[in-house]
């Protein structure tokens, strides 16, 4: 069967639950407004089961109700990530198995950019959004060069540390500095190292377009909201040629 509806306690009953806040004080009108919202969202009948004032001028609601929508599972479109998202344990195990040594990562903010927020969120143990940074992964050896690193220094350190991957963060975008810096960086690596010896080049920052990797001469671009686990999973995928 490809057509389904939500299930409360009987097949086909279409029951869902919903909670939300409206910025109005709690009274009869507020409760009516909550039901109106639920109706507009397709819940009919909508049953207001809980309403509670919060602070000055806000009310919290819980609504149960029936929706008439049908869902066709055959028509679901999913954008597949081209690499699997791995747990820290899986990342470490795969590196151990495939590489038989630690994977070397060098990270930096290049140019005049002093915003280490991005690179630190990805690299520092502290991490971001409840996920630990790459330093947490026992099989990743991480060198965080910090802010305002020059491209020659970055290339030199990458060579010294035998970097498998270089992560560059760019937050400042004034006069397209992030694009120019990235191009300069990828050109320097191409010049300094032959293909095959060149580390995987990854840039990240809130204003990058993820589709511009080819144009900027890097292997991958990560945009806003990227977490360390995604980066670690990608590294494993790209550098160990493994899908698990």
């Amino acid at each position: 069967m490809t057509i389904v509806r939500p299930y409360g306690d009987t097949t086909g009953d279409g029951m869902v639950q919903l909670s939300f806040t409206l910025p109005i004080p709690h009274d009869k009108r507020a409760e009516g407004a909550a039901i109106q919202l639920a109706n507009k969202m397709g819940m009919d009948p909508a049953l207001l089961v809980h309403a509670k004032p919060m602070g000055d001028g806000f009310t919290f609601f819980v609504v149960y109700g029936k929706v008439s929508h049908l869902v066709d599972t055959d028509k679901v479109q999913v954008v597949e990530r081209d690499y699997p998202l791995l747990s820290a344990k899986e990342v470490n195990a795969t590196i151990k198995r495939r590489l038989r040594r630690r994977l070397n990562v060098v990270g930096a903010c290049i140019g005049t950019d002093a915003h280490t927020v991005g690179i630190d969120a990805i690299l520092n143990l502290k991490g971001i959004a409840g996920e630990k940074g790459l330093e947490y992964y026992s099989e990743l050896s991480v060198t965080n060069m910090g802010a305002q690193v020059s491209v020659p220094d970055l290339v030199e350190t990458a060579r010294e540390r035998k970097a498998d991957a270089v992560l560059v963060s760019q937050v400042v975008t004034q006069r397209d500095a992030h694009l120019q810096n990235t191009r300069a960086m990828s050109a320097a690596f191409r010049e300094a190292l032959p293909t095959g010896k060149r580390p995987l080049l990854i840039v990240g920052g809130p204003r990058f377009d993820e589709l511009m990797a080819g144009e900027l001469g890097v292997d991958r671009i990560f945009s806003r909201g990227t977490t360390p686990r995604e980066v670690a999973s990608y590294l494993v995928h790209a550098l160990t040629g493994s899908s698990s």
């Binding site: 909670s19 939300f20 806040t21 509670k52 919060m54 602070g55 806000f58 919290f60 959004a129 409840g130």
Partner: peptide
């Protein structure tokens, strides 16, 4: 681990 707390979450 989901969102920064909403007014209702705090309540």
């Amino acid at each position: 681990a989901v969102v920064t707390p909403w007014l209702s979450d705090r309540d």
